[in-house]
């Protein structure tokens, strides 16, 4: 398994959108390398014929009916917003397009 370098951690941090100080990158690289080394064994204990369990209990087909419920009250919606304007959430300029 590949070792995690500070550069790898920086790439992952960018993907996870977290600013990390250079010292944090160094420290995390060391810690995560140890964790990854410890947990990497999982791939060796399972074979292809073992199905994955993504839900602990075998429930299927849980639906709600298409019936309108009241909206959150308008005053509650923006109450916790860091910034708002004209009934909308105000966010800094968006550089990237999605």
């Amino acid at each position: 398994m590949p070792a995690l370098s500070p550069d790898d951690v920086a790439r992952l941090a960018a993907l996870a959108r977290i600013d990390l100080e250079p010292a944090e990158l160094e420290r995390l690289a060391g810690e995560l390398d140890a964790v990854v080394a410890a947990v990497a064994s999982v791939s060796s204990v399972v074979s292809d014929d073992v199905p994955a369990t993504s839900h602990p209990l075998p429930l299927v087909d849980v639906y709600r009916e298409d019936v309108v419920e009241p909206s959150l009250p308008a005053e509650d919606v923006l109450a916790g917003a860091p910034a708002a304007q004209d009934g909308r959430f105000l966010v800094p300029q968006i550089l990237e397009e999605d």
Binding site: V67, V68, E69, S71, L78, G87, R88
Partner: peptide, 20 residues
């Protein structure tokens, strides 16, 4: 009438953030 994963209305043209 409602959203994919909750009961908020999907009606077009409502005031912002009133169907959430």
């Amino acid at each position: 009438a409602t959203k994919m994963f909750d009961g908020s209305s999907t009606a077009f043209g409502a005031e912002p953030n009133t169907q959430v």
